[in-house]
Computed example of a mutant assay.
Amino acid sequence: MEPLAKVFGGRLRALRKASGMTQEELGRAAAIDYKHISGLERGANVPSFEAIERLAKALKVDYYELFLPARIDVGREEQVVRVLVRELERQASPGTLRFVATVLGAIRTHEADRKGAAIS
């Protein structure tokens, strides 16, 4: 298992890049020195709870998102989805299941529309 500081750092880097921010811009937005941001992204520095709060706010994400793996291993996506579906079927209310089915249908429609636009 990868050390938590590395997981955090990789996720921080991915979220920062996805937001289009440099380390300096994130540092200014979170009131954290950009050199410390660099250390966090490498897993060399460990953030305080206060720093986590400021980073999440600056990146406009929930705190827990900073601890998610940067990516799911290729080939495991389907396995992860199956586990989630089983958990939903076991614990979710009928309304939640209908909501999830609607969201999945919308995603499929969007993907089909996107593929159709790329072919045109």
Rank of each mutant, 00 (worst) to 15 (best):
M1S: 08
E2D: 12
E2T: 08
E2W: 01
P3L: 04
L4W: 11
A5I: 02
G9F: 07
G9P: 11
G9H: 09
R11Q: 14
R13A: 12
L15G: 01
R16S: 14
R16K: 10
S19N: 10
S19M: 04
M21G: 01
M21E: 10
T22Y: 06
Q23M: 15
Q23S: 05
Q23C: 04
E25M: 08
G27A: 06
G27M: 06
G27N: 05
A30N: 02
I32H: 10
I32E: 10
Y34M: 11
K35G: 13
K35F: 07
I37T: 05
I37D: 14
I37M: 05
S38T: 07
G39L: 06
R42Q: 14
G43R: 09
G43Y: 09
N45L: 10
S48K: 12
S48A: 14
E50S: 11
A51V: 13
I52C: 15
I52T: 11
E53C: 02
L55V: 12
K57H: 12
L59Q: 09
V61E: 07
V61F: 03
Y63R: 12
Y63I: 02
Y63T: 02
E65Y: 08
L66H: 03
F67N: 09
L68S: 08
A70E: 12
R71P: 00
I72N: 09
I72D: 03
D73V: 03
D73I: 03
V74G: 01
R76F: 02
R76P: 00
E78V: 07
V80P: 01
V80N: 00
V81H: 02
V81A: 14
V81I: 07
V81L: 08
V83M: 06
V85N: 02
V85I: 11
E87W: 00
E87N: 01
Q91V: 12
Q91P: 00
A92L: 05
A92W: 10
S93V: 13
G95F: 05
G95N: 13
T96A: 15
R98D: 13
R98N: 04
R98I: 13
R98T: 12
F99C: 12
A101P: 10
A101E: 15
A101M: 05
T102A: 15
T102P: 00
T102Q: 11
V103H: 07
A106D: 15
I107N: 01
R108Y: 07
D113V: 05
R114Y: 09
R114V: 07
A117P: 00
I119F: 03
I119Y: 00
